[in-house]
Write a protein that binds this DNA or RNA. Structure first.
Lengths: 214, 214
DNA sequence: TTTTTAAAAAATGTATACAAAATTATAAAA
DNA sequence: TTTTATAATTTTGTATACATTTTTTAAAAA
């Protein structure tokens, strides 16, 4: 009861630029703002009900993060995706190896849960569990720099996933399961190898679907 | 003559937020703004001779890039440096391996030049050549994402280098030479291994010097 | 003395205004 | 018709004003 009130008050007090940031980010990620769309400060300001100043600020932030480029929603090419994955494979490969040696018990349990939801959950749940699988592994490095870099890349990758019926990608759950198992058995070499292979498959699936669709 | 005029005109027309960005960045990197210093928008605006609006924008950009944190010049800890290097070692290790297979002839020549300046140049030249050595290798990946990430990290690392008499680090030139040689001989494994070792040494040198100084 | 409290000052977040630049629409020429 | 030139419109970059929040300072209480 009290908590609810606090939350509501807080929500009102949230800085306009945070509102703007979240509003624009959401609309980009859920596809309402299509790739290539020009973002006009004044129109967005009106839509959100604030002035241009905080809208500007949030656009600049999203520009830094890579979701906006030259006032337009990014429209990454095949090549961009390849480049992103080249980095991702290096970092997440390392993360998986790291997990095989240093992962906590709780994290391992959560990881297992994510794998299981892969076969028991509905589309929504599976999607979310799959993302969490990677987040847990990356998070276990306890390296904020690494976490931040991957987070940023993931939101760009998400733009591709949308257009792609990603949850239907074959073998995805099996691959997650194998990675989990290698980590469980403290087999770092194998965990890294499997993660890299897994992400390579992801990339290829995305690229293929793009060709088919566009 | 004509060119000079154009440059001057251009310089005048440069957006205020670019001026602000460069001004603040320079002052952070050359140490005039010490680590931990609070950045006050109005004071900077006055100093540069513009209004707060573009100053704000540039501060936000630098915040995204990691040189400013919560309105203060970053003051990275030992741990931060370790985390940065953990990522750097992965990416530059890969870059070195990549170079062993795919580097152009010109790039190789330039790389050799950098190594040579290491023994013939003055302090200034050596410092700059050492930085270029890494830039060339990373640049050869042709992966803008990777280049961007490393660039960003390097400016934070630079904050440490300043306080440290970096050009005197033992074996640095020799290590660069060995990496160059491995690349020249198309020995990817060795290039990667040596690069990782080299960066690890860099990290440890920085950490040691920090302890001594502070 | 150290700790609290109240007042003053400084700094930030946001709105608004306006000139310069970029874009779009319209009319004239090829 | 297409192309070019001009005018109208939109959009951006910057300055400025002001209310709210944060920080600092000074005074009072413990």
């Amino acid at each position: 009861m009290i908590r609810e009130t606090i939350v509501l008050v807080k929500k009102d007090n949230v800085h306009a630029y945070v509102q703007a940031y979240e509003y624009i980010r959401d609309r980009i990620l859920n596809g309402e703002l299509e790739r290539g769309t020009k973002l006009v400060e004044e129109r967005l300001a009106e839509e959100i009900g604030i002035s241009r100043t905080p809208v500007r600020e949030s656009i600049r932030k999203l520009e830094q993060e890579g979701l906006i480029k030259q006032k337009r929603v990014v429209n990454p090419s095949d090549m961009d995706l390849r480049h992103i994955f080249q980095v991702r494979i290096l970092l997440e490969g390392f993360a998986a190896r790291h997990c095989a040696s240093f992962m906590t018990e709780e994290a391992l349990v959560k990881l297992k849960e994510c794998v299981d939801i892969g076969s028991t959950g509905n589309t929504e749940e599976v999607m979310s569990a799959n993302n969490e699988f990677h987040d847990i592994i990356v998070g276990a490095t306890n390296n904020p720099m690494m976490i931040d870099i991957i987070d940023r890349m993931q939101s760009i990758i998400y733009l591709f996933r949308k257009t792609v019926v990603y949850h239907k990608r074959p073998f995805l759950i099996e691959e997650h399961h194998d990675i989990y198992k290698a980590i469980l058995l403290h087999n770092g070499d194998e965990a890294e190898r499997l993660m890299k292979e897994h992400l390579q498959n992801d990339l290829e699936f995305c690229l293929n679907r793009m060709e088919t669709q566009q």
